[in-house]
Design a protein around this nucleic acid. Structure first.
Lengths: 345, 345
DNA sequence: CGAATTACCGCATACGATTGCATGAACAGA
DNA sequence: TCTGTTCATGCAATCGTATGCGGTAATTCG
């Protein structure tokens, strides 16, 4: 208590290197940052400093640079749930690109809640980073403005509904893909009663997918039966419960569409447990095409998104802004979804 | 270029709050850190400061505190591959505990490589954090010493082979569980030829599991056939290839054990593709009990580990050290593995 | 040989927040 | 009225690094 002492004693600082090499601290800094052109350092001195750095095992402290307003060498990523396999290829792609630039990545889960998203933004305000990758479900333009104004970070977003002049966006044509998938289900496959396992309207994506679903049925001239609309929360177990609900109906559907694969897999589990054959008695269709979609039997018919490609694009766009190679208006990049016809529908 | 300007202009600092409230910056600090007892702040002043903080929307800058040697409010986590479902419950548990303490979590993948692990340690030296969670495959005692000496961070490790006085360790009795699982396979199930899908001996865990496997066969009085030992790299596709190798043998095994579920699932895929029935013609067994083990058909017989419990324990132990509630010798916590008999063996 | 460059390098400051110490006011007791 | 005490607040140093500016030695040129 007498000395502050700090939690993190840094063994060797730039000052130590300077002292050991018999130069000033600023010289060490200039040798290491290597700002060529402006200030020159004698070759002899440079060598001596570099040797001292190596022998002492010195590493620069990134906290100091962050405080000075330099680069933080850090990215923050906001996703709904690291447990959902859909995010893995995206997270991996972001981490890999970041790693190539010698950046670290901080990851936070929101569990699809708006309070989770708000906490994330505050956490980035508290600890500014160079770049932010978001998969938002609730944030509105004001939130993006606040984030950018308060941190100065580059921002890249996954989602269809974001439209902000300074953020780059990658999105899939998932509404249209969903529309086509349902149309295929009713027109080609002749299903007249299709159940939906959706999510609450709090999620903008939930609203959009529901509308696309309804529109597809309408265009096919089918009646809309509210009993066929069930709600899940993106998890496997919620899909299981929703399917049980549909099975218990007086007149159950002949096909079920879930707005993500996790719920579709849960639904299939429930349907098979009830002794109902998939797809003969009840077809099942998902969305995302997670790797596990081909692990289940029957293999899941679904709509593929390409999270790895999306993640790579997001991170690359971010670094172009961070490195100052681009600072124009927000760019948009569409990744086309694709129907994967497999065995479950 | 004329002004340094910095990359991250901080909109509102403590100085701004102080100015707006008509007090000194240190007073604002004292109001916010709320060091009760030692220093008193007048109630009137305190209220005025708090109101100003709220109206300006001020948040403290964590980089500054980190530099001063205060808490960084950040954890670093090193895992092999975020794409492996085994890690998800663990990562989620760590994130959840961290979130309760208002901490952020940085996550890095090593892909089981030693260079990846070394880079992670260096990255933590560069940007010290309060706590580090490791799932190492290569690190030795000297690396832990270096990490602790250079950062002063609390360290918690998952794995059986770590023994360091200052790090807390959680481990499963996986060698023994594996031994029992194989014994069950050969004694109860009567398999005389069991193939192994293992990993290279570079991974300490690979060595251990291989030994346990061999020992089980030996005690059952079975001959050791080197042709039955194949190598994978923990991924599904490598399991697929390894199984193809076993199938191509003049005398293929009647059972296959993979040292993780991902490879077991890949193996099952290959076996079924070859038209061989699981488990009638060839049994398959995995290790980990990832959620997806029950998604495949037949459901995978495997040995369960409890990554969520492990993650929770690791993070909790870490915070006990960070908060100074514990600073004794390294603690050890064993999580018992359990054989999950399902349909594939 | 003296002056003007040029090439190197150090000093001092700033980033934002914490904290030991000093200072000032108010107040009580003598 | 003077001194001592308590309470509330301000001043300034500090963490590690980057950088504008000023200073010194070496070199060149007239």
């Amino acid at each position: 208590m007498s000395k502050p002492e700090g939690l993190h004693k840094q063994a060797v600082t730039m000052r130590d290197v300077a002292q050991a090499a018999g130069v000033s601290q600023s010289t060490v800094s200039r040798v290491l940052s290597g700002t060529e052109g402006s200030i020159l350092i004698g070759e002899e001195t440079r060598q001596r400093v570099l040797e001292t750095v190596a022998s002492l095992g010195y590493f620069p402290n990134l906290h100091a640079g962050s405080l000075r307003g330099q680069k933080t060498r850090m990215l923050a990523m906001m996703i709904a749930d690291i447990g959902n396999p859909f995010y893995h290829p995206m997270v991996r792609a972001v981490q890999d690109v970041a790693h190539e630039h010698r950046y670290d990545v901080m990851i936070a889960n929101t569990d699809h809640t708006s309070v989770g998203e708000r906490l994330f933004v505050e956490s980035v305000i508290r600890r500014p980073v160079d770049g932010v990758i978001l998969v938002p479900y609730h944030m509105v333009k004001a939130d993006f403005d606040r984030l950018i104004a308060r941190t100065g970070a580059a921002v890249a977003v996954l989602g269809q509904h974001i439209d902000h002049p300074q953020v780059d966006t990658v999105y899939g044509n998932d509404d249209q893909a969903l529309f086509e998938a349902i149309s295929w289900l009713v027109c080609e496959r002749g299903h007249r009663r299709v159940g939906l396992i959706g999510v609450t309207n709090e999620h903008s994506v939930g609203v959009r997918r529901r509308s696309a679903f309804v529109e597809a049925l309408r265009q096919a001239g089918l009646a809309i039966d509210p009993a066929l609309f069930t709600l899940g929360d993106w998890t496997e177990s919620s899909g299981y419960r929703a399917a049980q609900q549909l099975l218990a109906l007086p007149e159950p559907p002949t096909a079920v569409f879930a707005v993500n694969d996790l719920m579709a897999i849960g639904a299939m589990e429930a349907i098979q447990s009830a002794g109902v054959q998939v797809p003969q008695q009840m077809a099942v269709m998902g969305f995302d095409d997670i790797p596990q979609a081909t692990w289940v039997r029957p293999r899941l018919t679904t709509v593929a998104q390409y999270p790895a490609e999306m993640g790579r694009w997001l991170a690359t766009a971010l670094f172009e802004r961070i490195r100052g190679e681009f600072d124009g208006a927000g760019r948009r990049f569409e990744v086309k979804c694709r129907l994967c016809q497999r065995e479950s529908a």
